[in-house]
Design a protein around this nucleic acid. Structure first.
Lengths: 344, 344
DNA sequence: TTGAAAGCGCTAACAG
DNA sequence: CTGTTAGCGCTTTCAA
């Protein structure tokens, strides 16, 4: 039970066996069998001496660390995570839990300008990494070259070289707009994040446009409000919409994240528009934020915890050499009806 | 630039020097000087070959990992983190950022029943750990014995053996109640989390009681609503308060976390009480949530990012052997006035 | 200034 | 079934 270094040697001595035996027993190495009495003696020695394995030594030999890296988008390079959006916290929570159940730990790290995440991964002998968001195209070549198991979450890449966990964001956007259409809305605005070419926001936007077009409604760029995925952007968009909805005829808004929806509520209110009687709102994600506003948000729901769990299972699958075929995993989405949409 | 293992040997060969030289130059080992040309050759070799150091090997030798562990409260043992409260996300974000700027990475891990965090720390050769919440008394002896640099955040322990980063929660509670008192409120309810004996909620509650007593108001247990730190608990408390405030005479509530304040708003509204005209509300933390409700929350503000930064700097201080004296670091708090309190 | 070499703790041939 | 031993990549003492 001492704090200092108890080595595998020490427990070998204590148990009166060789280090090999101890190593085999502790690792339950397949194909090695031992007298149950031997096993018992080894385990006794372990508890008696308070032995814990030294992962550094183990990593050095195996070249694997039982560590999984998680890359979370930063607001800017050098800066902090975008944790104000509960989506990330929920995701990380699920990832950590699932990894831990499988004997892995999570290393989180943003990146500085002088070091790419791949360098971190190599330096730390990460067994795999989960990349959230869309850092891909810039680092594609490097990641590919590093030959490290990577799972992409919410990245729409042209390169199908990596396993990806995602939802059908385009379909989600379509569902949201269709829902509004079915309620009789014809002029539907869209508040969204930055429309980077291969991001989820882009896809949701395209889905929205498709639904409108399928309903015979021409795309009107004036109804698109893109900015940062933040509360503040929601406020700004809400104020603009509230200030013009009587002329523009807008009766509904599809907003692509709960956190922006909260801002939107505020902005609409500031501008004197009521939800849902003046403006109906449908959101995306359905984090717990959707339940705290008034009226509660109708939203396209995705299961963030499942996304995290699936991402971990996918990296582990790649690490273990299974899952080489199952390249793309698409999780289901649905619409949760609450009070923020009314019919026309 | 290859993915495979480039060793320090390889770059020694490439640069035409010995491994010792390379090691010294790469580590900028104090007291070792080299011809600037040699240094240049080594660095050239590093970039040419794409060398990244192997932390496992380094850890094995130094017995340090440049890894800092962060322990975040779990809802239950075995379970996931309490990330729905933005406090934790903001804290972690700041911790990761500060650590990274200092060349450290963050390992996050909850604990399973079969393994304490200290075992994780030993197995992973963590250089230090930041413990958030109050796991202390149960593990006190073990942590002490492990002799690993520990910084406690938001833990009120009797044992002053560890460096602690905190705010004066009792003072915060006092300030909140005093603020309400000064506005003319006499019957002030308190909605809080579980009152574990050495937790922040306990302290805030004591501050509230003290302020009331100092104002000559007897403590009334009926005005205390304790439960879990969650949105739901806030809702329940709000409904109860709204249902009885006309009889009980309650005109104000001090709620000990923003996330509960949001629930409280909802509950009050459900029960037909208006904020602030019927019931004034003052909250604690002042995360971004305080700004999203209507009316915006007046709150006791603590700087979560600063707390994270300070915690990291404190562990690093302990690791480097400085800071042995500065045992307790108390961060400032203040009151941010917004629209949720009105005078009487 | 530089180099040889002894480990750090562990795994996994290989030999018994 | 069990023991010996050669590394994994790196730091650092000691000697040159």
């Amino acid at each position: 039970m001492r704090a200092g270094r108890v080595r595998i040697q020490d427990i070998a001595a204590e148990a009166g066996v060789s280090v090999t035996t101890v190593s085999y027993i502790l690792n339950k190495t397949p194909g090695q069998t031992f007298a149950s009495e031997t096993i018992q003696r080894v385990h006794d020695a372990v508890t008696a001496l308070g032995y814990v394995p030294n992962m550094a030594a183990r990593s050095l030999v195996n070249n694997r660390s039982r560590l999984i890296g998680v890359v979370i988008p930063q607001t800017e390079l050098h800066k902090e995570f975008m944790f104000s959006n509960p989506f990330y916290g929920d995701f990380l929570s699920s990832v950590e839990y699932t990894a831990r159940q499988n004997g892995y730990h999570i290393l989180i790290s943003g990146t500085n300008a002088d070091q790419t995440y791949i360098e971190v991964a190599r330096t730390r002998s990460l067994d795999g990494i989960i990349i959230l968001g869309m850092y891909l195209e810039e680092h594609y070549a490097e990641i590919k070259r590093a030959e490290i198991p990577v799972v992409l979450v919410d990245c729409y890449s042209e390169n199908k070289d990596f396993t990806a966990v995602q939802i059908d964001d385009r379909q989600g956007g379509y569902m949201a707009a269709k829902y509004l259409l079915d309620k009789g809305h014809r002029r539907i605005a869209h508040v969204t994040g930055l429309l980077k070419s291969r991001g989820v926001n882009q896809q949701r936007m395209v889905g929205w446009r498709m639904a409108l077009e399928d309903a015979g409604i021409a795309y009107d760029e004036a109804l698109l409000y893109d900015g940062e995925v933040s509360y503040e952007h929601g406020v700004k968009a809400g104020e603009k919409i509230a200030g013009s909805f009587r002329e523009s005829g807008v009766t509904a808004v599809f907003v692509s994240a709960d956190i922006m929806a909260l801002g939107l509520y505020k902005g609409l209110k500031n501008g004197g528009a009521l939800v849902p009687s003046d403006i109906s709102v449908i959101s995306f994600d359905d984090t717990w934020l959707a339940g705290i506003c008034d009226p509660e948000l109708t939203a396209v729901r995705q299961d963030v915890a499942l996304k995290g769990k699936t991402a971990v299972e996918a990296v582990l699958g790649v690490i273990d050499g299974k899952l080489s075929d199952k390249r793309e995993i698409t999780l289901p989405i649905s619409i949760v009806e609450r009070g923020s949409v009314c019919g026309r």
